[in-house]
Amino acid sequence: MKMMSKKMPVVVQIILIALVVFIMDFIFTSQSNISILVGLLFWAGVGQGLIAMSAAADLAQGKWIKSIKPYMQEYYPLLAMFPIIFIIFSIHAPAYRWSWEPGTWLNLPFFIIRNTIAYLLPFIVAHFYVMASRKSSNKTQLAAVLYIVSFVVCQSFMAYDQVMSFEYPWINTLFGAFFFIEAMYAGIAFSIFLTGLLSWKDSSGFKSSFQDFTLMLMGFALMWAGLFYSQYLVIWYGNIPEEVSYIATRMEDPMIEKMGIFTLLTLFLIPFLLLVSRKIKSTVPVVFGIAFLVLAGLVVERLIYLIPVGDLSVMGVIMPLVLMGIPFLALLRSQYSSTNGKN
Protein backbone atom coordinates (compact mmCIF):
# COMPACT_ATOMS: atom_id res chain seq x y z
CA MET A 1 0.00 0.00 0.00
CA LYS A 2 2.88 2.31 0.89
CA MET A 3 4.62 1.58 -2.37
CA MET A 4 1.41 2.19 -4.30
CA SER A 5 0.84 5.68 -2.94
CA LYS A 6 4.48 6.75 -3.23
CA LYS A 7 5.37 5.53 -6.66
CA MET A 8 2.13 5.37 -8.55
CA PRO A 9 0.42 8.57 -9.73
CA VAL A 10 -3.17 8.97 -8.55
CA VAL A 11 -4.52 8.76 -12.11
CA VAL A 12 -2.91 5.36 -12.58
CA GLN A 13 -4.14 4.21 -9.17
CA ILE A 14 -7.70 5.20 -10.06
CA ILE A 15 -7.60 3.53 -13.48
CA LEU A 16 -6.13 0.38 -11.97
CA ILE A 17 -8.72 0.22 -9.20
CA ALA A 18 -11.56 0.91 -11.63
CA LEU A 19 -10.28 -1.90 -13.82
CA VAL A 20 -10.06 -4.35 -10.92
CA VAL A 21 -13.52 -3.30 -9.70
CA PHE A 22 -14.87 -3.84 -13.19
CA ILE A 23 -13.31 -7.32 -13.47
CA MET A 24 -14.46 -8.33 -9.97
CA ASP A 25 -17.91 -6.99 -10.68
CA PHE A 26 -18.00 -8.96 -13.92
CA ILE A 27 -16.87 -12.18 -12.21
CA PHE A 28 -18.86 -12.05 -8.98
CA THR A 29 -22.13 -10.36 -9.85
CA SER A 30 -25.00 -10.68 -12.30
CA GLN A 31 -26.64 -7.75 -14.12
CA SER A 32 -29.40 -7.46 -11.53
CA ASN A 33 -26.84 -7.30 -8.70
CA ILE A 34 -26.41 -3.79 -7.28
CA SER A 35 -23.77 -4.57 -4.64
CA ILE A 36 -21.21 -2.18 -6.12
CA LEU A 37 -23.50 0.74 -5.23
CA VAL A 38 -22.82 0.19 -1.48
CA GLY A 39 -19.12 0.96 -1.85
CA LEU A 40 -19.74 3.77 -4.30
CA LEU A 41 -22.21 5.55 -2.02
CA PHE A 42 -19.98 5.08 1.00
CA TRP A 43 -16.59 6.16 -0.38
CA ALA A 44 -18.06 9.01 -2.45
CA GLY A 45 -19.55 10.25 0.82
CA VAL A 46 -16.22 10.00 2.65
CA GLY A 47 -14.18 11.66 -0.12
CA GLN A 48 -16.59 14.46 -0.90
CA GLY A 49 -17.33 14.96 2.81
CA LEU A 50 -13.63 15.46 3.58
CA ILE A 51 -13.32 18.24 1.02
CA ALA A 52 -16.68 19.69 2.09
CA MET A 53 -15.41 19.99 5.67
CA SER A 54 -12.33 21.81 4.42
CA ALA A 55 -14.44 24.13 2.24
CA ALA A 56 -16.86 24.82 5.10
CA ALA A 57 -13.91 25.68 7.35
CA ASP A 58 -12.55 28.06 4.72
CA LEU A 59 -15.93 29.76 4.48
CA ALA A 60 -16.26 30.07 8.24
CA GLN A 61 -12.58 31.12 8.51
CA GLY A 62 -12.23 28.38 11.10
CA LYS A 63 -8.75 28.49 12.54
CA TRP A 64 -9.02 25.18 14.39
CA ILE A 65 -8.77 23.21 11.16
CA LYS A 66 -5.86 25.19 9.72
CA SER A 67 -3.11 22.66 10.45
CA ILE A 68 -5.00 19.67 9.08
CA LYS A 69 -6.68 21.33 6.07
CA PRO A 70 -3.82 20.79 3.57
CA TYR A 71 -3.81 17.09 4.45
CA MET A 72 -7.58 16.83 3.94
CA GLN A 73 -7.31 18.56 0.59
CA GLU A 74 -4.80 15.96 -0.63
CA TYR A 75 -7.71 13.54 -1.02
CA TYR A 76 -9.47 15.54 -3.74
CA PRO A 77 -7.92 13.67 -6.74
CA LEU A 78 -9.61 10.51 -5.47
CA LEU A 79 -12.99 12.06 -6.31
CA ALA A 80 -12.18 11.31 -9.95
CA MET A 81 -12.69 7.63 -9.17
CA PHE A 82 -16.43 7.92 -8.58
CA PRO A 83 -17.72 8.90 -12.06
CA ILE A 84 -15.77 5.91 -13.43
CA ILE A 85 -17.19 3.53 -10.81
CA PHE A 86 -20.66 4.92 -11.50
CA ILE A 87 -20.27 4.11 -15.20
CA ILE A 88 -19.35 0.55 -14.18
CA PHE A 89 -22.44 0.47 -11.95
CA SER A 90 -24.61 1.61 -14.87
CA ILE A 91 -24.26 -1.93 -16.29
CA HIS A 92 -26.62 -2.90 -13.45
CA ALA A 93 -28.99 0.05 -14.00
CA PRO A 94 -31.72 -2.19 -15.50
CA ALA A 95 -32.23 -3.30 -11.85
CA TYR A 96 -34.27 -0.09 -11.45
CA ARG A 97 -37.88 -1.12 -12.05
CA TRP A 98 -38.72 2.19 -13.70
CA SER A 99 -36.26 1.35 -16.49
CA TRP A 100 -38.78 -1.19 -17.82
CA GLU A 101 -41.26 1.64 -18.42
CA PRO A 102 -39.06 4.70 -18.96
CA GLY A 103 -40.42 8.18 -18.43
CA THR A 104 -39.22 11.71 -19.15
CA TRP A 105 -37.01 11.92 -16.06
CA LEU A 106 -36.53 8.29 -15.19
CA ASN A 107 -34.99 6.75 -18.29
CA LEU A 108 -31.63 5.00 -18.43
CA PRO A 109 -29.59 7.16 -20.86
CA PHE A 110 -30.56 10.39 -19.09
CA PHE A 111 -30.08 8.75 -15.69
CA ILE A 112 -26.53 7.66 -16.55
CA ILE A 113 -25.56 11.01 -18.11
CA ARG A 114 -26.85 13.22 -15.30
CA ASN A 115 -25.41 11.08 -12.52
CA THR A 116 -22.00 10.82 -14.21
CA ILE A 117 -21.98 14.62 -14.47
CA ALA A 118 -23.10 14.84 -10.84
CA TYR A 119 -20.07 12.77 -9.75
CA LEU A 120 -17.72 14.64 -12.06
CA LEU A 121 -18.78 18.08 -10.89
CA PRO A 122 -17.41 17.94 -7.28
CA PHE A 123 -14.10 16.62 -8.60
CA ILE A 124 -13.69 19.48 -11.10
CA VAL A 125 -14.77 22.17 -8.63
CA ALA A 126 -12.64 20.61 -5.86
CA HIS A 127 -9.62 20.93 -8.14
CA PHE A 128 -10.11 24.70 -8.52
CA TYR A 129 -10.97 25.09 -4.86
CA VAL A 130 -7.86 23.24 -3.63
CA MET A 131 -5.61 25.15 -6.05
CA ALA A 132 -7.05 28.48 -4.83
CA SER A 133 -6.79 27.43 -1.20
CA ARG A 134 -3.16 26.32 -1.55
CA LYS A 135 -2.24 29.66 -3.09
CA SER A 136 -4.33 31.49 -0.45
CA SER A 137 -5.95 33.22 -3.41
CA ASN A 138 -8.75 35.70 -2.82
CA LYS A 139 -10.97 33.41 -4.91
CA THR A 140 -10.77 30.64 -2.29
CA GLN A 141 -14.07 31.59 -0.68
CA LEU A 142 -15.91 31.67 -3.99
CA ALA A 143 -14.43 28.31 -4.97
CA ALA A 144 -15.41 26.91 -1.54
CA VAL A 145 -19.02 28.04 -2.06
CA LEU A 146 -19.07 26.45 -5.50
CA TYR A 147 -17.65 23.23 -4.11
CA ILE A 148 -20.30 23.08 -1.39
CA VAL A 149 -23.01 23.63 -4.03
CA SER A 150 -21.59 20.88 -6.28
CA PHE A 151 -21.26 18.58 -3.25
CA VAL A 152 -24.90 19.16 -2.27
CA VAL A 153 -26.04 18.58 -5.87
CA CYS A 154 -24.05 15.35 -6.18
CA GLN A 155 -25.18 13.96 -2.82
CA SER A 156 -28.78 14.88 -3.65
CA PHE A 157 -28.54 12.95 -6.92
CA MET A 158 -27.05 10.01 -5.06
CA ALA A 159 -29.93 10.06 -2.60
CA TYR A 160 -32.93 10.84 -4.78
CA ASP A 161 -31.84 9.35 -8.08
CA GLN A 162 -29.64 6.40 -7.24
CA VAL A 163 -31.25 5.17 -4.01
CA MET A 164 -34.76 6.59 -3.62
CA SER A 165 -35.80 5.87 -7.20
CA PHE A 166 -35.49 2.13 -6.52
CA GLU A 167 -38.82 2.53 -4.72
CA TYR A 168 -40.49 4.96 -7.10
CA PRO A 169 -43.03 6.56 -6.55
CA TRP A 170 -42.11 6.59 -2.81
CA ILE A 171 -40.64 9.97 -1.91
CA ASN A 172 -38.82 11.39 1.08
CA THR A 173 -37.98 15.08 0.69
CA LEU A 174 -35.31 15.01 3.41
CA PHE A 175 -33.34 12.18 1.82
CA GLY A 176 -30.92 14.48 -0.07
CA ALA A 177 -30.11 16.62 2.94
CA PHE A 178 -29.73 13.45 5.04
CA PHE A 179 -27.18 12.13 2.54
CA PHE A 180 -25.01 15.23 2.48
CA ILE A 181 -25.04 15.53 6.25
CA GLU A 182 -24.03 11.87 6.45
CA ALA A 183 -21.24 12.53 3.94
CA MET A 184 -19.90 15.29 6.17
CA TYR A 185 -20.26 12.95 9.16
CA ALA A 186 -18.18 10.37 7.26
CA GLY A 187 -15.66 13.06 6.34
CA ILE A 188 -15.28 13.98 10.00
CA ALA A 189 -14.91 10.33 11.05
CA PHE A 190 -12.16 9.86 8.47
CA SER A 191 -10.51 13.13 9.53
CA ILE A 192 -10.34 11.73 13.07
CA PHE A 193 -8.04 8.96 11.81
CA LEU A 194 -6.01 11.47 9.83
CA THR A 195 -5.64 13.95 12.70
CA GLY A 196 -5.15 11.27 15.33
CA LEU A 197 -2.35 9.57 13.39
CA LEU A 198 -0.62 12.84 12.64
CA SER A 199 -0.92 13.99 16.25
CA TRP A 200 0.96 10.87 17.35
CA LYS A 201 3.92 12.07 15.34
CA ASP A 202 3.54 15.81 15.84
CA SER A 203 1.37 16.59 18.84
CA SER A 204 2.00 20.35 18.68
CA GLY A 205 0.10 20.97 15.45
CA PHE A 206 -2.67 18.42 15.44
CA LYS A 207 -3.72 17.69 19.00
CA SER A 208 -6.15 20.59 19.33
CA SER A 209 -7.58 19.85 15.85
CA PHE A 210 -8.15 16.26 16.98
CA GLN A 211 -10.14 17.39 20.00
CA ASP A 212 -12.18 19.75 17.83
CA PHE A 213 -12.93 16.93 15.40
CA THR A 214 -14.15 14.74 18.27
CA LEU A 215 -16.50 17.57 19.27
CA MET A 216 -17.70 17.80 15.68
CA LEU A 217 -18.25 14.04 15.64
CA MET A 218 -20.40 14.33 18.72
CA GLY A 219 -22.36 17.25 17.23
CA PHE A 220 -22.96 15.38 14.00
CA ALA A 221 -24.14 12.31 15.95
CA LEU A 222 -26.84 14.50 17.44
CA MET A 223 -27.66 16.07 14.10
CA TRP A 224 -27.86 12.64 12.47
CA ALA A 225 -30.32 11.52 15.14
CA GLY A 226 -32.43 14.66 14.62
CA LEU A 227 -32.62 14.18 10.88
CA PHE A 228 -33.27 10.44 11.18
CA TYR A 229 -36.09 11.06 13.63
CA SER A 230 -37.56 13.82 11.47
CA GLN A 231 -37.99 11.32 8.63
CA TYR A 232 -39.12 8.39 10.71
CA LEU A 233 -41.67 10.32 12.77
CA VAL A 234 -43.34 12.09 9.85
CA ILE A 235 -43.66 8.88 7.82
CA TRP A 236 -44.79 6.72 10.75
CA TYR A 237 -47.23 9.26 12.18
CA GLY A 238 -48.68 10.10 8.74
CA ASN A 239 -49.57 6.40 8.44
CA ILE A 240 -50.20 6.50 4.70
CA PRO A 241 -49.87 2.88 3.48
CA GLU A 242 -47.73 3.68 0.42
CA GLU A 243 -45.31 5.68 2.62
CA VAL A 244 -45.19 3.47 5.71
CA SER A 245 -44.52 0.40 3.57
CA TYR A 246 -40.92 1.62 3.20
CA ILE A 247 -40.31 1.36 6.94
CA ALA A 248 -42.58 -1.66 7.44
CA THR A 249 -40.68 -3.71 4.83
CA ARG A 250 -37.44 -3.09 6.67
CA MET A 251 -38.85 -3.65 10.15
CA GLU A 252 -40.50 -6.94 9.24
CA ASP A 253 -37.18 -8.49 8.19
CA PRO A 254 -35.41 -9.61 11.40
CA MET A 255 -31.95 -9.17 9.90
CA ILE A 256 -32.61 -5.63 8.66
CA GLU A 257 -34.22 -4.80 11.99
CA LYS A 258 -30.99 -5.80 13.77
CA MET A 259 -28.98 -3.80 11.26
CA GLY A 260 -31.24 -0.83 12.02
CA ILE A 261 -30.49 -1.14 15.72
CA PHE A 262 -26.79 -1.34 14.85
CA THR A 263 -26.95 1.92 12.90
CA LEU A 264 -28.82 3.66 15.72
CA LEU A 265 -26.14 2.52 18.15
CA THR A 266 -23.14 3.32 15.98
CA LEU A 267 -24.33 6.56 14.42
CA PHE A 268 -25.98 8.10 17.46
CA LEU A 269 -25.97 6.45 20.87
CA ILE A 270 -22.36 5.24 21.10
CA PRO A 271 -20.63 8.37 19.73
CA PHE A 272 -22.93 10.72 21.59
CA LEU A 273 -22.84 9.04 24.99
CA LEU A 274 -19.14 8.19 24.97
CA LEU A 275 -17.97 11.55 23.68
CA VAL A 276 -19.72 13.39 26.49
CA SER A 277 -16.74 12.38 28.61
CA ARG A 278 -13.82 14.78 28.35
CA LYS A 279 -11.40 11.96 29.12
CA ILE A 280 -12.63 9.81 26.25
CA LYS A 281 -12.49 12.76 23.87
CA SER A 282 -8.76 12.99 24.36
CA THR A 283 -8.05 9.22 24.33
CA VAL A 284 -7.00 8.64 20.72
CA PRO A 285 -7.53 4.83 20.49
CA VAL A 286 -11.08 5.05 21.92
CA VAL A 287 -11.99 7.89 19.57
CA PHE A 288 -10.54 5.84 16.70
CA GLY A 289 -12.86 3.02 17.71
CA ILE A 290 -15.85 5.37 17.74
CA ALA A 291 -14.93 6.83 14.34
CA PHE A 292 -14.59 3.30 12.95
CA LEU A 293 -18.03 2.41 14.30
CA VAL A 294 -19.49 5.52 12.67
CA LEU A 295 -18.04 4.51 9.30
CA ALA A 296 -19.26 0.92 9.80
CA GLY A 297 -22.72 2.26 10.69
CA LEU A 298 -22.83 4.24 7.47
CA VAL A 299 -21.98 1.14 5.42
CA VAL A 300 -24.68 -0.87 7.18
CA GLU A 301 -27.19 1.93 6.63
CA ARG A 302 -26.53 1.80 2.89
CA LEU A 303 -27.17 -1.94 3.03
CA ILE A 304 -30.50 -1.26 4.74
CA TYR A 305 -31.50 1.00 1.86
CA LEU A 306 -30.53 -1.51 -0.80
CA ILE A 307 -31.21 -5.03 0.57
CA PRO A 308 -35.00 -4.94 0.07
CA VAL A 309 -34.81 -3.49 -3.43
CA GLY A 310 -32.14 -5.43 -5.31
CA ASP A 311 -29.81 -8.41 -5.43
CA LEU A 312 -26.73 -8.14 -3.24
CA SER A 313 -23.94 -10.62 -2.67
CA VAL A 314 -21.32 -10.74 0.05
CA MET A 315 -18.37 -10.69 -2.33
CA GLY A 316 -20.09 -8.16 -4.55
CA VAL A 317 -20.35 -5.76 -1.61
CA ILE A 318 -17.00 -6.40 0.06
CA MET A 319 -14.69 -6.38 -2.96
CA PRO A 320 -15.56 -2.90 -4.32
CA LEU A 321 -15.80 -1.54 -0.77
CA VAL A 322 -12.24 -2.68 -0.04
CA LEU A 323 -10.85 -1.77 -3.46
CA MET A 324 -12.26 1.76 -3.39
CA GLY A 325 -10.90 2.17 0.12
CA ILE A 326 -7.33 1.27 -0.89
CA PRO A 327 -6.30 4.68 -2.32
CA PHE A 328 -7.75 6.41 0.76
CA LEU A 329 -5.84 4.19 3.14
CA ALA A 330 -2.70 4.35 1.00
CA LEU A 331 -2.75 8.13 1.08
CA LEU A 332 -3.42 8.11 4.82
CA ARG A 333 -0.42 5.89 5.35
CA SER A 334 1.82 8.00 3.15
CA GLN A 335 0.73 11.17 4.99
CA TYR A 336 1.56 9.47 8.29
CA SER A 337 4.95 8.31 7.07
CA SER A 338 5.92 11.65 5.57
CA THR A 339 5.07 13.69 8.69
CA ASN A 340 8.16 14.54 10.72
CA GLY A 341 7.90 13.63 14.36
CA LYS A 342 8.32 16.56 16.71
CA ASN A 343 7.59 14.81 19.96
Partner: peptide
Protein backbone atom coordinates in the same frame (compact mmCIF):
# COMPACT_ATOMS: atom_id res chain seq x y z
CA UNK B 1 -38.95 24.67 15.46
CA UNK B 2 -38.96 21.00 14.46
CA UNK B 3 -41.98 20.57 16.72
CA UNK B 4 -43.60 23.67 15.21
CA UNK B 5 -43.01 22.20 11.74
CA UNK B 6 -44.64 18.95 12.83
CA UNK B 7 -47.86 20.85 13.57
CA UNK B 8 -48.10 20.76 9.80
CA UNK B 9 -46.04 17.78 8.66
CA UNK B 10 -47.85 15.25 10.87
CA UNK B 11 -51.09 15.82 9.00
CA UNK B 12 -51.69 14.44 5.53
CA UNK B 13 -52.59 17.77 3.95
CA UNK B 14 -50.92 18.25 0.53
CA UNK B 15 -47.94 20.60 0.77
CA UNK B 16 -47.59 19.92 4.50
CA UNK B 17 -46.84 16.23 4.84
CA UNK B 18 -43.15 16.39 4.07
CA UNK B 19 -40.11 14.98 5.89
CA UNK B 20 -37.97 17.99 5.02
CA UNK B 21 -40.22 20.29 7.06
CA UNK B 22 -38.25 20.07 10.33
CA UNK B 23 -34.81 21.17 9.05
Amino acid sequence: HSVVSWDFAMSIVPGWHSTIFAP
